[in-house]
Design a protein around this nucleic acid. Sequence first.
DNA 1: ATTAAAACATGACATTTATCATATTAAAGG
DNA 2: CCTTTAATATGATAAATGTCATGTTTTAAT
Lengths: 234, 234
Amino acid sequence: MSPKNIIIMSKCEQCIVREFSSLKALTKEELLKLSDCKTSHIIKKGEVIFEEGENVNGIFCIKDGICKLTKLSANGKDHIVKLVTKGELLGQRSMISDEPVNLSAVALEDMQVCFIPKSDVMGYFDKNNQFSMNVMKTICGDLKEADDHMVNLAQKTVKERLAETLLYLHDSFGKNEDESLRIQLSRDELASIIGTATESCIRLLSDFKKLGLIELSGKKIVLQDIAKLKKVAE
Amino acid sequence: MSPKNIIIMSKCEQCIVREFSSLKALTKEELLKLSDCKTSHIIKKGEVIFEEGENVNGIFCIKDGICKLTKLSANGKDHIVKLVTKGELLGQRSMISDEPVNLSAVALEDMQVCFIPKSDVMGYFDKNNQFSMNVMKTICGDLKEADDHMVNLAQKTVKERLAETLLYLHDSFGKNEDESLRIQLSRDELASIIGTATESCIRLLSDFKKLGLIELSGKKIVLQDIAKLKKVAE
DNA sequence: ATTAAAACATGACATTTATCATATTAAAGG
DNA sequence: CCTTTAATATGATAAATGTCATGTTTTAAT
């Protein structure tokens, strides 16, 4: 992330998304201090926030937008491990483990993020028990999600995984006025969430369309028959 | 776990495996108190320590033996998410999230485990910063492992996953005097680690044998050519 | 607006993997 | 020790998925 992306943004006390993250435990004094040590950034769609193996030395708080967390596999393909959105924090695991990040973060749409240096976060971490507890619970939630995801990848067919993922995108990120999924992924990205070849993903989307489960127009996807999709996902 | 399994065991201060878990951070006084609140248990091979959905209300410290952590998938098959052995703790995520456990734990061999009630652990957790930090780092490590595992399941072939798993079993659990893998899994269990049908797993083991990568005699598996196995795993 | 590049789509085919059937072997219980 | 059951093994086949080729559409850049 280049320094030119640093911009002036509102104070942390007035930031709404803070309420949705572990940071909600911070006191007014802590928030005032936080406003001083944070830097705010605009990240454009497609830009990299951090890359696998990098030393991030802090955490990011997402004020707006969505990004994907990816991991490079042995065969050279990226796998999307998780989607992260407004109100969530990035880089917590790496900070606690005191290790380089094990995933890359790439913006799926224009984003606003704030960066808080590790030294500052760790201060809150040591002194504010509720804050550290919140971070821990988030990581525990991630671990549970990862376990579920793992079992799905191991036991479900590509078709089931695609149906499930479409429902997940619908439930987690909502839809636009025209009923299409708010989050827009390329076929390639969708394939790398469900763990399949791009062509297989495209083919199954076409099948779903023919079966009346979804509507397709360009990148836009409308879930037409959610009940049936749920049946396909099992 | 039935109460009849409770047995008298040595004091925590003298317990060696404690040194390998987050509990190593506890002070002598804390360990003395721990000895009083813990209960010790013998678990026979195949017995269930806890089951998915159960309220465990504490953590288990494994003094001896190995168990599998499994999750039931939608199609009714168990998937082995993780193997846990001597020196590790069980049930930490559930305790911190304050939720039922999301995995079942089943002994793969006879085990000795100690149970520490949640109320006691949480006491150490609040007062001993190093202990809570250790627990957190363990969970962060689990999350990283889960991410890696996920990508492997999504991107690698069954053959690659089998080779990788055999190497993992070798590196993590060692071998017996006769060079065979110390940890003994049924073909069915091996299949449910790599996420495939039992028959496919058996077939690939036969292939590996024909290729001179491994030796098979009953449940015993000897890794004959580790270099080649690594190549197969990529 | 034009062109180049990227993304999407589909057919043909190869490969991988699952499923079903059926032996064979090993383990466990009376 | 015998008998029953479970685990292992293998063949035959079906189904799922990946790969390569190729054409179309969309997007982005000049």
